[in-house]
Computed example of a mutant assay.
Amino acid sequence: MKYTQLGRTGLKVGRLVLGTMNFGPQTDETDSHTIMDAALDAGINLFDTANVYGWGENKGRTEEIIGNWFAKGGDRRDKVVLATKVYANMGTEDEAWPNHDKLSALNIRRAVEASLKRLRTDHIDLYQFHHVDRNTPVEEIWQAIDVLIQQGKILYAGSSNFPGWKIAQANERAGRLGMVGLVSEQCLYNLAERRAEMEVVPAAQEYGLGVIPWSPLHGGLLGGVIKKEVEGGRRASGRSADALTSTSVRAQVQAYEDLLDKHGLEPGEVALAWLLTRPGVTGPIVGPRTAEQLASALRAVELELSEELLAELDGIFPGPGPAPEAFAW
């Protein structure tokens, strides 16, 4: 496994990030533990979760599964760079009190204590704001984070789904308070969705944030979805199915699959390998439901894409162009 640094930190992390969103809802605890063991053995050491994962009545279940894995010992916790998130209301629909969500100092304080308990650890390495909170002053958020850092309950703060201007605002305010600020940003970024290249990635690079793309296969659209339909009768679902109703998108995906078939390459592995060539990217999040899916993702780390192939991929899925030049008419 190749390693890099996580933004402006001293943390060394693998070029893939283990996403745990499926642990609980789709993958049971035993299989989840098997996947985590395999990921750590392969050199993936940044594990990403969120307090809300498990969803619905099972909010928090994913953190519990990770906590039970840590409790098995074997230096599991010491070897992992642990990332979780705060924002969602963790109560049931009938218990959704107004101060039990988002990024108020009160909710951050409550949420971190609950996550630490579920994760069965005394600290979180990377505590991430899951979404922008338009109603809480940035200074209040940083005050709460500073207290948690001083208490040793978190080491660093990161963002998720932040626009470029919000990254700039958050880090400018942090700088005035003498704080490190955000060290990472999780954003939607893949071959089929490259808008992050306009402002989010440039802002992250300017302020020294590591970029951690989520949905690197764009909900399965870049994972050989048309070929699976043809060969196995497995129809696309969710975001992939919606996207393929567009004639132009379907033509793009077909051209993508035809190109990689000509080179003897797997679409999902190429989509991950492409992200690893992008400036500023720390590592894409992979969310395997099975050990086999993890093994496929690991092959992408060793996959070298030629300049010719990269140019052909750009031709099929063109990016917005470099900022600020791309803003000009």
Rank of each mutant, 00 (worst) to 15 (best):
Y3M: 14
G10C: 11
L18C: 13
M21V: 08
G24L: 03
S32Y: 08
I35V: 15
M36G: 14
M36Q: 04
L40Y: 02
D41L: 09
G43A: 15
N45G: 12
F47P: 01
T49M: 03
G54V: 13
G54K: 14
I65L: 15
W69P: 06
G73D: 10
V80F: 03
V80W: 00
K85G: 04
Y87L: 01
M90H: 10
N99M: 12
K102N: 08
L103N: 01
N107L: 04
V112F: 00
D122W: 04
D125H: 00
H130C: 07
D133M: 08
P137I: 06
A144Q: 01
I145D: 00
I149K: 13
K153M: 08
S160K: 05
N161F: 09
F162C: 05
G164Y: 02
V180C: 06
G181P: 10
V183K: 03
Q186K: 04
C187H: 01
A192Y: 10
E193M: 10
E193Y: 08
R195D: 12
V200D: 00
V201H: 02
A203Q: 10
A203D: 15
I212V: 15
G219K: 03
K228H: 10
G232Y: 11
G233F: 13
R234L: 13
A241Y: 15
D242N: 06
S246V: 09
V249C: 07
R250F: 06
V253D: 01
Q254M: 10
Y256R: 07
L260W: 02
G264Q: 11
P267Y: 08
G268T: 11
A273I: 04
A273Y: 01
T282P: 05
G283N: 09
P284V: 08
Q293Y: 02
Q293N: 12
A295G: 11
S296V: 08
L305R: 09
E308V: 14
A311K: 15
G315K: 09
I316S: 14
G319K: 04
P320Y: 14
E325N: 04
A326V: 09
